[in-house]
Design a protein around this nucleic acid. Structure first.
Lengths: 205, 205
DNA sequence: ACCTAACGCAACGAGTTGTCGCATTGGATC
DNA sequence: GATCCAATGCGACAACTCGTTGCGTTAGGT
């Protein structure tokens, strides 16, 4: 069941092509992501790309998968504010990374009805479980009300940064990330993200 | 200096074309916004579109201008929470509107280096001045610390909603808008959006 | 009734897209 | 180092899309 030819040339071609894909996305955006352009840039014949990736979306999907496979780092600063700040700065790192920017813009342009969206959903699922642990620890320390929704917290941390990148084209710097983290911390402490308690009791572990 | 022929046919054509532009954007996205497709859909010959709008981006720009010309409504509920809730719900209305969704997605895909971006910047400028008045009133009432940045508040209100639409494809409902407003209110009250006071005094007014 | 801007129409050249058959190459295996 | 085969290179191609142009027609001001 081993791959027929997992070896050198194929891997090199893939690397060159996916790097060219990022370059092309960076310069020409999703609209300019044609198979021909990527082939020329990678120094590979376009027939090869059509055979292995089929379409431009196939290229995007492969590049995205490679990028999203980085494991999400779990912060552990001992305080809610510290953890949220770390999360916001990690998000900032992705959003300021050249490949990250290119891929995020492309994903948004590609829409939500394809395999690309599945990779994104999987990424957010992992990210949310990470945030859930942070929230849980904070609740144990008494820093947050019980029943705080991790998904709401996770979205709120990233949202202002994505907003700057995608909508308002404002600068993405550490101050922006830290402000976002502080805002989320304040809102979470105020119970804005707390799920309305079913009846009035939430005791189980 | 009056327009040569401002009358009937031209106006009808424009309406039909811009409506077809929205339809096409809704169904096929920015990538599918070809002049030919819009012409067929509008029942107008493509040469006419090339003559009047030049390119697909010209169509987008005209449709966007028409849409963005709605004046931004100023809320006046008497409380910060009420005003922010109104603002969030207004944003929600745009983001759930068919044309609004189509245009916002298109604008993001079109990027930030064109005339389209200018219309967007103008829109946000007006929106920010509106939010500034709300913030100012709240500060006068003592609900907010002095020096609270309106731009930060405005961004924070819209961000989670844009995030749902563009990135995570989550539902856009009143609960989402209200939560966003509540989160911003909590953060603003905590002074997260307060500009660091120049030296240490902020007494005037 | 007249006049002209706006539109319809058809055809076109240029560029892009995806596919095909065949030659060549690289690297795994013995 | 000889052999073999999957992966790639190569060029040509039909189909399609894009934007333009010249000319005839129409609508709506005057």
């Amino acid at each position: 069941m081993s791959q027929p030819r997992p070896g050198g040339r194929t891997a090199r071609t893939r690397t060159a092509v996916l790097e060219a894909t990022i370059d092309q996305l960076t310069e020409a955006g999703y609209a300019g992501l044609s198979v021909d352009a990527v082939a020329r840039r990678a120094g590979v014949h376009k027939a090869t790309l059509y055979r292995r990736w089929g379409t431009a979306d196939g290229l995007l999907l492969d590049a995205l998968t490679l990028f999203a496979d980085r494991s999400v780092a779990m912060p552990d600063t001992g305080t809610l504010d510290g953890d949220l700040r770390d999360i916001a700065r990690s998000a900032l790192a992705i959003l300021t990374d050249r490949a990250g920017q290119a891929l995020i813009r492309a994903v948004v342009s590609a829409g939500h009805d394809n395999q690309v969206a599945q990779v994104i959903r999987a990424f957010w699922t992992r990210h949310n479980t990470m945030v859930a642990r942070v929230v849980e620890q904070a609740a144990d320390r008494g820093e947050l009300p019980a029943g705080t929704e991790p998904a709401d917290v996770a979205r709120a941390i990233g949202a202002p940064l994505y907003m700057r990148l995608l909508v308002t084209a404002e600068p993405l710097d550490t101050a922006a990330a830290d402000q976002s983290a502080a805002a989320v911390a304040a809102a979470a402490r105020a119970g804005v993200f707390a799920r309305p308690s079913a009846h009035d009791a939430e005791s189980p572990a």
